[in-house]
Design a protein around this nucleic acid. Structure first.
Lengths: 210, 210
DNA sequence: TAGTAAGTTGACACTTTGGTCAGGTTTTGT
DNA sequence: ACAAAACCTGACCAAAGTGTCAACTTACTA
């Protein structure tokens, strides 16, 4: 008789899938899609290769599962720009949240960067549409602020890209960022200083007021 | 008798090496080091694989040749921050030059990003030292401006990272940048708008003066 | 124009890779 | 205890990968 879906089944499956995904994130982020070998993922996850194939039917399936998992984790960090906050507060919260997310999810952040650099081959139309939708919503908020005179007129989409780029950089280019800061590794303090500098610069600029 | 080094030898060798490097930049930038197959480079350069091995003895040798070639091309875009310019002018020139360089050398820019994300395995100590030295020089200039009161106190290293990140983004993440701007491809105009927005934001910020 | 170096290449050797499979063991509901 | 489902895995395969080589052509020098 077919067995029912039950607790322990889920536990074994969940545990192994989690191990594979975790190892996959690490290795795909370092080697890219084409550069990653399933045997490496198997080794890193502590499972034999054939067992990896028991849970995932192909390399692509592991990869797309990770991409999906990654995009899910993002909406959280991006929710701070809402019309009911004051711009200064909203920007500060956004910058801090995004840096916090990238710091705690360095491999995922790199994996996403890797995927884009390699031509966004596995981002679905739906994924991209979702990213566009979120951007549009934030752009609308910024346009509202400009209309109310709460911030100076500025292209909201380029402004957004600027924030995105600045916050991603520390995770993606950690060795370069560390070199630039004359450190060997980045600490939480470095991320805090980054948040402060980005927020200050974007809010008031570097030129003294005349 | 051994033949002298002459014009035509150089021409054949130079031409083929150039074709291989060019194809290599394109493919390494898209697939990363591990993901790139020599046969692909051979095909893209129009040479048979064995001929590629006639000029380069290994995949690694092609890759490191490209990295070296790439770093050479950089110092140009980075020379605009000098103490004898006014900060506003210097930042504007730097941002414009860097964006211009990345727009015209998209594949190289991506290749560098790819190399860093993949752990900077082929950047030599010398390469990294050079990057550090250039950064230090610019940091010193910015610190000078702060001391003179020409710009507000700000962490010069994080400010630098911000500029670096913002200008790199359009080349590295072209599909995402295009999505964010509601375009299908980025045009020269988009790069100009980016330069304007980045410069304005960094110089005067987005908040109105009280 | 003969001789030598440079350039070219199809075919080959060897290794690694993604993916399969047959047959095993463990877990679980009844 | 038993059967059925879920799980596990060593061994295997075809395809694709890197790098080699001997034999060939082309280019140049004296």
């Amino acid at each position: 008789m077919p067995r029912e879906h039950n607790e322990l089944d889920e536990k074994i499956r969940e545990r192994n899938v989690r191990l594979i995904i975790k190892a996959g994130i690490e290795i795909f982020s370092r080697k890219g899609y084409d550069g990653t070998r399933i045997a490496e993922i198997a080794e890193a996850s502590g499972l034999p290769k054939a067992n990896v194939y028991y849970y995932f039917s192909s390399k692509e399936q592991i990869y797309t599962a990770i991409i999906g998992h990654l995009l899910d984790g993002w909406d959280n960090a991006l929710k701070y720009i809402t019309a009911d906050r004051e711009p200064a507060e909203a920007f500060r919260l956004y910058i801090r949240a995004k840096l916090d997310y990238t710091r705690k999810n360095i491999a995922e952040t790199r994996l996403f960067a890797s995927e884009i650099i390699q031509g966004a081959r596995f981002l679905t139309k739906k994924d991209r549409q979702h990213i566009r939708d979120v951007t549009d919503k934030h752009v609308a908020v910024i346009e509202g602020w400009i209309a109310e005179g709460k911030i100076l007129p500025v292209d909201p989409r380029h402004l957004f890209i600027m924030l995105w780029a600045s916050t991603q950089f520390y995770a993606e280019f950690e060795p370069i960022a560390a070199d630039g800061l004359k450190k060997t590794r980045l600490t939480v303090g470095d991320y805090e200083m980054a948040a402060k500098t980005i927020a200050e610069t974007v809010l008031r600029g570097v030129l003294p007021h005349e």
